[in-house]
Simulated scan of single mutants.
Amino acid sequence: MTDSAEFLKLTGQKSEDVPDIDLDNIDELLAQLTQEELDELNGDFDPDNSFLPPSERMRSQTTKDPTGPFSRKKLLAFLEKKAKDEKDWENIKQYVKKAPGSSDVADISEKTWKAKEVPKTQEEKDIDTEWDDILTQATEDELVDLAAVLGFHGMLNQTQFYASENNEKLESGGFAGLAKAEQLKVAPFEPPNTTDVEQSIRLIKDNDSSLKHLNLNNIKNISYERLEAVCDGLKTNTQLETLEMASVAMTDRVAKRLSEALKENKTLTSLNIESNFVTGELIVEILKSINVNKTVTEFRATNQKPEALGNKVETKIIKLVQENDKMMKLGLAFEFPETRVKVTEKLQSNYDQVRKKRVSDKGEA
């Protein structure tokens, strides 16, 4: 079968409609075509052919030579300038739907489109007559006050609303006013801790009855030897009830001496070692020492570096807390929800036991 016959079979056309073409001489046929005919032939693509990549579904239509390299920034600037320079449509004409049987071109009316006016009722006319003059003559500040009274908070910013509520004059106010941040109120610095560390150490060692509460918080220049001396004095002291040592750069070295002292001390009830450098293992050791005599009912040790205790340490803390029926307050930041729930439940149970005992004592009295 010849090439022409095969072409007729595929296309279903008649032989008289298609000239007899020898496809073997395709190069000679293409050589006879002009440049315009070749361009038309090369542009004959199917734009919906999904088997061709998008770049090959249509030939390039650009015939101008490039004036320079492509610049996205310049292109966006040109498009923005062109959009600003273009004039808007002067009149928007109403679109009229074509009548059945009319031409395909839609009719455009000669007049500018206007919204249909709905006639007002007599009640609406009376309302307009009563309030229009009042609202028209009202100043912008009076309208702001009215919006605040009526509860239209969305029409006001925060500064305007509170100024209207407190009957304060608001400069540059109104609906176009800007909310400005209030001036910061400078809070005075807390006075430094003036506790005499050397005297406190002597009072602890002498078991002075006047020293019930020792506050060493935020004293930065306490040496390790002085902190250890405070801890060692607790072994024989029977007067001190509250010891605060937050943010004194305590390390495990000092915490170890503290845990040893708590095994012998039987009068301390509140201990605070927050914001130091005590690891989780030493916190566990301190809780073990507290459980020896169970006199400390409040223990705070949050904000340590490192702060994360870890699952192993938190599991030990759960066991130690559950063994202590006297602990009322425990200041520790836990990572796992199970630890928080179990510790909270145990502390609540201890509170309930104290409350029941207090109620029963009152009943007997």
Rank of each mutant, 00 (worst) to 15 (best):
M245V: 00
K114F: 13
V321Y: 08
I222M: 04
E37D: 15
P19T: 07
N221C: 06
K356M: 06
C231Y: 09
D85R: 13
T295R: 03
E171G: 08
I21C: 03
A77H: 11
V341I: 15
A187E: 06
Q94E: 12
R257Q: 12
S210I: 07
E80A: 11
N311K: 11
K256S: 09
F70P: 04
E40T: 04
F70S: 11
I201C: 07
V149N: 12
L143G: 09
T11I: 04
D24E: 11
A187W: 13
F277K: 15
S71D: 14
K14D: 10
E225C: 01
K329W: 00
Q137I: 07
N157I: 01
E364D: 07
K81F: 12
T302R: 14
A138C: 11
E260D: 10
F299H: 02
T267M: 03
N237T: 05
V254L: 09
K288C: 08
E123Q: 14
E244R: 09
T129L: 08
V343K: 00
E142I: 01
E314W: 12
V118M: 03
E274F: 06
C231P: 01
V144H: 09
K185L: 14
L33S: 03
S349R: 03
Y95K: 13
K316C: 04
G151C: 09
E117W: 10
S109C: 06
